[in-house]
Design a protein around this nucleic acid. Structure first.
Lengths: 206, 206, 206, 206
DNA sequence: CATGAATGAGGGTTCATTCAT
DNA sequence: CATGAATGAACCCTCATTCAT
């Protein structure tokens, strides 16, 4: 446990530093200093800077996949799935800002991740969402004249844009704002941005 | 003219190398070599690697702003504006892949750009789009129960997600695919992803 | 102790190289090679070439100040004080040639030291000597119709000229020559260069 | 004449820049800019930075030698010779500060000048003064129990110390101060720093 | 004479990584 | 486990110098 304590200490420090300075500008020494451990101990646990970073990112991808898998398998209502996906990101923003910030600024489209492995991670993320969209189509909830991955791009793109702006501006999030954001995205995603289509105003004022 | 030739040569080489390797992994020597000029000449034109990169990025931001300003001021139909915005990105993808790739992977959310100046660039980009959306609301085309910047996030987020996937996968784009993408985004953005709302299938099969 | 060993090794090597080539023509690699350590170790102990040099120079100034402070506070005879000051420089010349050579050629009047801080160092050096001269005046030993700092300039100027010539010519110094030099400076400084003033020949033949 | 104009313009600019930044920190471009000429023109007149600097320094040495030769050959009174030597430096300080500053900080003891040629320049300077001192001894004015070069060191050392302090502090010089300085140096040099030796107060209050 | 674009060797500095203690 | 001294390859940048125009 003492072992894991130190290791966790280092990981937490890394999250902070990677978030604050970015991968390229983070020194292994910065992490050690922030964690309050010696220089070499970081190398005791992680063989290299890159492996260390991958370790962190990998954990995040897994969390993301797990969440999406859960929604996919779930028998819950479709709109609820969308809501939970959005809420997942917003909750993570509130509780693990560093992690989400790293994901947005260093991973999601970084040139660091323009390898086959990186592309694969990314595609799996979108694929899982595709399947949820396809299921929505099969259930007759979503229109079928648009390919499911188009729906995915629009839905995830919207979420990412929101999160990105929040991350870059280090904005605060409140429960109220969270709900407004969820409603806004779902409203427009499902019913469109056009006026007078008869459902826009019924749900909420965003 | 001979003067600008060399400088342009260097800029083109830089676009290629920055695109291929990313800012952090680009060596000034790589750029010089690719441009077929001496090491020092790069510094004759650009005082540092960072300034050089900024120069490139700044030109891009200006192009982007100009395009959005033009749409904002234009008296054209609203849907046409949306279409031209999307088309702008897709055309740039086709004609200046390197530039757009750099924008996506190194700029749009990069930690490099998490400065006040960087944030300002970003906000101006979103702001201009906000104004177009607000105008759509005033014209009665867009629903008014959603704040304009929400619409912006969804619209631009969708475009960026499309472009990102294309950039990461280095995908080819055809005229046909371009049109399908434009229609897809506009359809879902304006009319929503839901089935049986009566306008989805009329425009095109995507 | 092993720790200080390496550091001391590097400092000694630096003294040699700075002395031989001067600050501007000294390469950090030269120092490392001369010390028999790796390139990076120099930077482990000293953050930059300039800081390293300052560290060396600072130690020297301190030694100099300490010596002058000691003479100032001492209750010894005035002529003895002058003699010990001169002897201090000649002894340092014999035992730490490199250090004194660096002081003469790189510090004492170098443009490197034309900063406020550099000027302050210099003035403190002269100030301490001023006080000793002023004390000599108060004791009635030195003439009072000349400002003490004039006396300082002449006394220290003489020492520096001697040392400079020796440094530039890399001359050997013997005990005999040391004593002759001390006598020569003191004789002329105290009794003047004129003939037939009745005290020139009594002390020694220089 | 137009030719010499440009050349002189460049030399003057060089004096300013070398004085302000020192040899090592002066860029050929700085000189060109200060002179208001193009980069390459400096090279049209001076084949290299070092040759350029030598050219400047060489002119100074010649001026110095000429002055000392003139005093040596002159049949004027000995004390007048000393006075004119001191006055020469003080006048140069007033009229050609840059030149004298460069001499003090970059030449007189610089490691740049620790070559055989440099040492030779220096020795010739001292030698000429030696001869004047020897003549003073032969005339029976100066004491003969001290070797002439000792007298030289003390006399020139005093002058250099005065000038150095003035240069480092960029001090102003007035006619009055000039005379006081001359008297002070000559008084102490000739009659010594000791009190009650019967000639201190007769000349002036310094 | 005059310009300034072009060259490229060289130097200071960084920092991931290793390893003896 | 833990430390931090030690390594050295790599990279950005400088700037004296050349030369075509």
């Amino acid at each position: 446990m003492a072992k894991n304590d130190k290791q966790e200490l280092i990981v937490d420090a890394a999250l902070e530093v990677f978030c604050e300075k970015g991968f390229a500008n983070t020194r292994m020494g910065d992490i050690a200093k922030k964690a309050g451990v010696s220089y070499g101990l970081v190398y005791h646990y992680f063989e290299s800077k890159e492996v260390f970073f991958d370790h962190i990112v990998e954990r995040w991808w897994k969390t993301l996949y797990d969440m999406l898998e859960a929604e996919k398998s779930s028998s819950a209502g479709f709109e609820g799935k969308l809501e939970r996906i959005i809420r997942f990101f917003l909750d993570t923003y509130a509780s693990k800002f560093n992690l989400l910030s790293i994901f947005i600024t260093e991973v999601s489209r970084s040139s660091l991740y323009r390898t086959d492995a990186g592309l694969a991670r990314f595609r799996k993320f979108f694929s899982l969402c595709d399947e949820i969209m396809a299921e929505g189509q099969k259930r007759g909830i979503l229109r079928s004249d648009v390919a499911p991955h188009y729906l995915t791009y629009i839905f995830l793109g919207a979420i990412e844009a929101f999160i990105s702006i929040m991350v870059l501006g280090k904005e605060k999030i409140t429960k109220q704002r969270e709900q407004r954001t969820i409603n806004g995205i779902i409203q427009v995603f499902l019913h469109g941005a056009m006026a007078q289509n008869g459902h826009g105003g019924t749900r909420s004022k965003t």
